[in-house]
């Protein structure tokens, strides 16, 4: 995360209400986009993203490492999404893959990803949104998802394969 954002997070933690507004202005769209892609409905994304920001305001004073704000924010967003998806969210087995994400694979245009995401299962969709659309690092994705980096890689690998299949169909 950029150091400019760290300063804004710290100002918000001190109690500068304008800094909180600045955070919302800067991060509202990524959060809304993530929630929208995960839930598939704009009206739900409105409610859930509002819920996310309330949780952020409540928890912000206790955030120990401001530089990890992005991962913390998306962890909160994910928790809200999982609450929404709990009914239809089924655990799926993962395949451990040791290889690094293939550079050739990530030549996936954002526009294509957005268009095809709806056909990808929730777990794979989530990692695609975080990594490709929200530009979170592998480590940040792992933190948000609460899994090891290796698992993020394996999910990305599978997600790209599914995306390719989706594009080919």
């Amino acid at each position: 995360m950029e150091s400019a954002w760290v300063a804004v997070v710290v100002r918000a933690q001190v109690g500068d209400r304008e800094a909180v507004a600045e955070l919302v202005r800067g991060w509202h769209e990524p959060v809304w986009g993530y929630v929208r892609h995960m839930l598939g409905r704009a009206d739900l994304a409105d409610d859930v993203s509002q819920e996310v920001w309330l949780a952020v305001v409540r928890g912000l004073p206790r955030l120990k490492e401001p530089e990890r704000f992005a991962a913390w924010l998306f962890t909160i967003a994910r928790r809200s999404v999982v609450n929404q998806l709990r009914q239809r969210y089924a655990e799926q087995p993962h395949v451990d893959v040791d290889e690094e994400p293939d550079p050739a694979d990530h030549v996936i245009e954002r526009i294509d990803v957005r268009r095809l995401l709806g056909g990808v299962p929730v777990m794979e969709r989530e990692v695609l949104v975080l990594f490709h659309l929200e530009d979170l690092s592998l480590e940040e994705c792992a933190e948000v998802l609460g899994v090891p980096v290796g698992t993020v890689k394996s999910r990305l690998y599978r997600a790209r394969r599914l995306l390719r299949e989706e594009a080919g169909s």
Binding site: V24, H28, A45, D46, L54
Partner: peptide, 18 residues
């Protein structure tokens, strides 16, 4: 899509110092 300003307005109560 709900705007950032609407979201900020929704946080008003939680942020109110008073």
């Amino acid at each position: 899509m709900i705007s950032a300003e609407e979201t900020i307005a929704g946080l008003h109560d939680s942020l109110s110092l008073r």
